[in-house]
């Protein structure tokens, strides 16, 4: 995946960046301009981003696997810096640089970069640079055997989750979560932490609530009334700690962070539920219904027999009591929507 990014000089002296990345929550609408300005030494109004209309912009790849900030962000930094240098090169002068939108020489600010850029457009015409992602040499992946290194680096994380389990209902509630994420460098720390909080909450939902139920290949819970995701009241306090250790392959050292918080939260939650109840949690979501079933399995009964999860007040196993009525597995429309 080459993820091309284009930077183009406009007649008004602004640099326009074209990528297909759409901000659907990953934060690129904030982070990309930050990267472009910092890489080019440009001012607030010197860079514009084209609408990600695929008729106009190059295909920068999907929002997956550290693609947005790390790969495309890096290409933006490179492309903008190179375009800036192309504009700067014809200007005669020693030791010129660009900082906060100004061309700066040994004696101090020379002129706004945008003025020089506009002049360049008038004299030399349109200017456009495109860069494509090339994996580092040491990163080899064989497309025919699917062997090798698919990713140049990984972000790392650790999660701690504390739950309370209601002994009457077997409903587990997360009361605290801590996520420690090594992200290379946080370009926008508030958004980065927001990514991790949101991802952690989603991981908790996955661990305890979110179950895709299928019958005969069809979804039984295909909407928000029946596919249950956490509300704010289901959300514990989430403490996020960023560890920053710049990675040379990312823009200003940044790695991707979007998927990372989904990795550890659910296993941590499952372990916490097991630790609290003694019931073996072998699949998620660890719904009360599944915990009840697991507690009455031979292993579960042996492990948690003394706690008596599976038994009723009389010590009988409630889970194995049958109702005497045929079970109806398929919900009627009315049952879905009382």
């Amino acid at each position: 995946m080459k993820s091309p990014v284009t930077a183009r000089l406009r007649a008004d002296g602004r640099i326009e960046v074209l990528t297909a990345m759409t901000d659907m929550g990953q934060g690129c609408a904030a982070v990309f301009p930050q990267i472009a300005r910092a890489a080019g030494g440009l001012g607030e109004d010197d860079v514009v981003f084209a609408e990600p209309d695929t008729g106009d912009v190059p295909d920068s790849g999907p929002t997956v696997a550290s693609r947005t900030t790390m790969i495309v962000g890096n290409l933006i930094a490179r492309t903008v810096a190179e375009l800036r240098d192309s504009i700067l090169d014809p200007i005669v002068g020693e030791g010129l640089s660009v900082s906060d939108g100004w061309i700066v020489g040994p004696a101090g600010p020379v002129e706004p970069f945008r003025d020089a850029a506009r002049r360049h457009f008038e004299t030399a015409g349109p200017l456009e640079i495109t860069h494509r992602h090339e994996p580092p040499e040491w990163q080899t992946f064989d497309e025919s055997t699917y062997q090798g290194a698919a990713y140049p680096t990984y972000a790392w994380g650790a999660d701690v989750v504390e739950v309370e389990v209601d002994p009457d209902t077997l409903a587990a509630r997360p009361v605290a979560a801590t996520a420690v994420c090594e992200v290379g460098r946080a370009i926008h720390p508030t958004l980065c932490k927001g990514q991790i909080e949101g991802g952690t909450l989603q991981a908790l939902g996955w661990a305890l609530l979110e179950e895709v139920k299928l019958q005969d290949g069809r979804y039984l819970n295909d909407r928000l009334a029946t596919y249950i995701i956490p509300t704010i009241k289901d959300s514990p306090r989430i403490d996020v700690h960023l560890l920053e250790r710049a990675w040379k392959g990312g823009p200003f050292g940044a790695k991707g962070v979007g998927e990372l918080p989904m990795d550890g939260g659910a296993p941590a939650t499952a372990q916490a539920v097991e630790n609290a109840t003694g019931i073996p949690v072998e699949e998620i979501p660890a719904t009360p219904e599944k915990l009840l079933l697991a507690s009455s399995s031979p292993v579960g009964a042996a492990l948690c027999g003394r706690a008596g999860w599976g038994g009723g007040a009389n010590g009988k196993n409630a889970a194995s009591e049958k109702t005497g009525r045929p079970h109806r597995a398929a919900p009627t429309e009315n049952e879905v929507l009382p």
């Binding site: 929550g25 932490k193 927001g194 990514q195 991790i196 909080e197 949101g198 909450l201 989603q202 928000l224 995701i229 509300t231 704010i232 009241k233 959300s235 514990p236 306090r237 989430i238």
Partner: peptide, 14 residues
């Protein structure tokens, strides 16, 4: 805010 679902951000922080 219990009736406002949010998927991606930290509603927990708000």
């Amino acid at each position: 805010l219990a009736g406002n679902l949010c998927r991606c951000t930290g509603i927990c922080g708000e």
